[in-house]
């Protein structure tokens, strides 16, 4: 099942310069693994060695942050869009 994945500008160089690509999977975790196998530069950017999502990456299914859904086990259906963005955070002290 092909899912559209939106790639953030900072990672587009790893995806042939494309702003969105297709990947296969029934869950967010499967889609990200497939993405990493198609674009090896992407592997290590999204998932840590423990297999969890890096804390500095936000992944969404349509409008929802997967951290508030079932994380990597969140299911995806044909027609849904998975978006990847960098987490934007910092601090003054």
């Amino acid at each position: 099942m092909a899912i559209t994945v939106r790639i953030p500008t900072v990672l587009r160089a790893h995806a042939g310069g494309k702003s969105s690509v297709e990947a296969e999977g029934a869950t967010v975790g499967e889609v990200l693994k497939d993405l990493a196998s198609r674009y090896p530069g992407m592997s290590g950017q999204l998932l840590g060695e423990d297999g969890n999502l890096h804390r500095f990456v936000n992944v969404y299914v349509d409008d929802d942050d997967v951290r508030y859904l079932d994380k990597l086990y969140t299911t995806v259906r044909e027609g849904q869009v998975v978006s990847i963005l960098p987490a934007v955070a910092g601090g003054g002290a």
Binding site: N58, Y60, D63, D65, S83, L85, V88, A89, G91, A93
Partner: peptide
């Protein structure tokens, strides 16, 4: 989203909406 006087985190949903 951090609701703090010392750190910040741009609310992820609002970040996506802005993008």
């Amino acid at each position: 989203a951090a609701a703090s006087s010392r750190i910040y985190e741009v609310d992820p949903r609002e970040l996506l909406a802005a993008d």
